[in-house]
Design a binder for these strands. Sequence first.
RNA 1: GUCCCCGUCGUCUAGGGGUCGAGGACACCGGGUUUUCAUCCCGGCAACAGGGGUUCGAAUCCCCUCGGGGAUGCCA
Length: 495
Amino acid sequence: MTIITPPPITRQITRESAMRVRFAPSPTGYIHIGNVRTAIINYLIAQKTGAVMVLRIEDTDMERSTVESEKSIMEDLKWLGIRWQEGPDVGGNHGPYRQSERFGIYREYTEKLLAQGDAYHCYCSQEELDAMRAEAESKGTAFTYNGKCRNLTPEQKKKLEAEGRRPTVRFRVPDGETVSFRDHIKGPVTFSSENIGGDFIIVRSDGTPIYNYIVTIDDTLMGITHVIRGEDHLSNTPKQILVARALGLNVPEYAHLALVLGPDRTKLSKRHGITSLNLYREEGYLPEALINYLAMLGWASDTGEEIIPIKDIIAQIDITNLAKSAAIFDFQKLKWMNGKHLRELPLDRATDLFTPFIAKAGYDVSDRKFIERIVSVVQVKCEVLSDIGRLAGIFMEDAPEPDDEAAAMLRSEEGRQVIEAAAALFAGEINAGNFAESLVNAVKDRTGLKGKKLFMPLRALITGRLQGPELDQALPVIGFERVSKRIERCRKTFC
RNA sequence: GUCCCCGUCGUCUAGGGGUCGAGGACACCGGGUUUUCAUCCCGGCAACAGGGGUUCGAAUCCCCUCGGGGAUGCCA
């Protein structure tokens, strides 16, 4: 961590006419799907308006912030295709872009607040605060810091410090002040300064600043014109505005996005399991599907079309047509949407994307042509890229063991008929040159079976399962040798 | 508890005073295409939270109630 010397406050404040937005994650773990949506909306709006996108790392919580998660967040954003023009990795004129590197700047503002009397040192310990909170709780009233340390004399301070107490800095919340602003999504919002919980801590006893204090400093210093963030920040906004007022900083415009909820209707969090983006990536979700789905959560296209390319989303989305109410994350619909995007992929790109998943399932992917043929046959069967892991064996293994369903099918009356017919055909009229075109009909003629009764046993025989690719298409890809081995194996096992 | 936000099918939404006996999508159920599962196509089920206003007319505007969520941290 480097602490830079702060430039004079006045020189730092920049006014810019162009729109600037930011995404400000805190690097305390994998990026979470709710934050991903915030990032996506910021990105989409930036693309639409030509706004500069800033990435700021909010790592003031030294306990929980890690460089690894900062890295993974940036990687995930890049994977999604989200780009920023300013950030810790690319630099820019409003840096540094890590809050941990801006402590010197905040310190200067803290001195100013202290000097103005808008902030003061508070010596109450964690335990004392907890006790006050517990008492308020038991009385059923709201906890508001009582201002105990508001007017300490130098002597009192000295005495408290002598006890070994390290003070925090609290912001002195003015009485009877109204804070209102016009939110781009929610409309006009008004708070009274009486209702924000009393004087709040802006600097921890270890000297590190707190989010609600520095967020507005950074936003104005970085020239952010529009703060687009989750609704969970709505109630914090008045604190931030009060700080800005005391500091003489002008506040940005706000757009508070309705929250993404889990199936239990509470704010989506780790508890809901499937929330970190890398999990989706690993399962084989496509960036374009994720963006499509997440954008659609709380927004609808002009035509009502749901599967929509990113460029069309950018063309149509607007800060004013985003939903005001929270939305439940529907995993099933996302999966459906991913399948739609997956099926529309051109073969070449689909092959690129599927290949690592085939490799991950343990198969050799060195023969690109062969992989491409497999993909062309099973692409339509997949909803996520990892689905191919279960299907690849059909083409890659000599004689895979039929699964339970398929085995049951092969043991049935029709199953045996089909196996024997196929075996006989392979011993005679069917050969490497004609098997792909002839097998199905030859078995049909020999057994008299048709429709489902023909295809299901055949499917079980050839692929070892009841669900899978179109048989006509799969046969030539599997190849004569392997089909022959499978028939032989099944004949021995089931007849 | 207090403050703030929100409230159309189970879920995501369209709608913004008459064209709404409420439209689309996911899911679910039925049917069709496919000599096969799936894809694809067609059909069905299913909602304006409740109560008061305002208005000739309210899902749409206002108020109350109820319900949900968020904030209330030396987290962000």
